[in-house]
């Protein structure tokens, strides 16, 4: 029979079970939100640093993926979401392929970015892409130079996407409106201009 390990001290046992970090700026819910959105067990990180050692962004900036993993575990929500380094991950997944705990640090970053957007923290270029897709269906729309080149190649001037079938655009807008994405993007962009 397996032996139950314990200290024979109920109060101490309860404390040991509780893995949350208590500090004025810690929010244990942050870790739970990150885990749900990233679909990875972020709390399992043991801070080995393999991720940072694999990261193409690390040698040329102060961005440290291991630090964001730690902030997740400790529930340091504000510190994580307000750090502009959050947006320096190229999502190359090198860290994810090498993490000895089989975690997905890349998806932790994606989750934190999603949470940042919820509190209006987001670089402008991301919002511009949202606006373009809302308007045209494409993040990188066609232009006249390209249209001329396409015709020379024997292709239609506009590809058979929403560019040739704009009747599909209202459906795309409906989907984005369902999540209020365009509305929020417009609002954040216009507030930034004030």
């Amino acid at each position: 029979m397996a032996r139950v390990k314990d200290y024979g001290n109920a109060e101490l046992e309860e404390k040991l079970q509780d893995t949350s970090y208590y500090a004025d700026d810690a929010n244990p819910q942050f870790l739970e939100d990150v885990k749900k959105l990233s679909r990875t067990a972020a709390n399992m990180c043991f801070q080995c640093g393999t991720c940072t050692g694999s990261c193409p962004s690390a040698p040329r900036s102060s961005y440290r993926i291991r630090l964001f993993m730690r902030r997740g575990v400790l529930g340091l929500e504000k510190e994580a979401l307000n750090d502009p380094d959050l947006w320096l991950c190229t999502t190359c997944y090198s860290c994810t392929d090498r993490c000895p705990r089989d975690l997905a640090p890349t998806d932790v970053i994606m989750a934190m970015r999603n949470l940042a957007f919820k509190v209006d923290i987001v670089p402008r270029n991301f919002l511009k892409t949202v606006q373009l897709i809302y308007k045209t269906g494409h993040g990188v729309p066609n232009n006249d130079v390209n249209r001329a080149a396409r015709v020379k190649l024997g292709l239609p001037a506009d590809p058979p996407t929403t560019h040739s079938y704009p009747e599909f655009i209202p459906g795309i807008q409906k989907i984005m409106d369902f999540y209020k994405m365009k509305e929020n993007a417009d609002r954040i962009l216009s507030e930034g201009e004030q």
């Binding site: 959105l37 947006w87 190229t90 999502t91 994606m110 989750a111 970015r113 999603n114 957007f117 987001v122 270029n125 991301f126 919002l127 892409t129 949202v130 897709i133 269906g137 494409h138 993040g139 990188v140 058979p160 996407t161 929403t162 040739s164 079938y165 009747e167 599909f168 459906g171 795309i172 989907i175 984005m176 369902f178 999540y179 994405m181 993007a185």
Partner: peptide, 29 residues
Amino acid sequence: LPLKGASCCPAPGAFGAIDLKVWYALAAR
């Protein structure tokens, strides 16, 4: 063969980073 009416995939980094739910839905479309 042409996939008529397709849109941006949408861009996993620039778009999924903001709201994964919209990324799932537009890719699903």
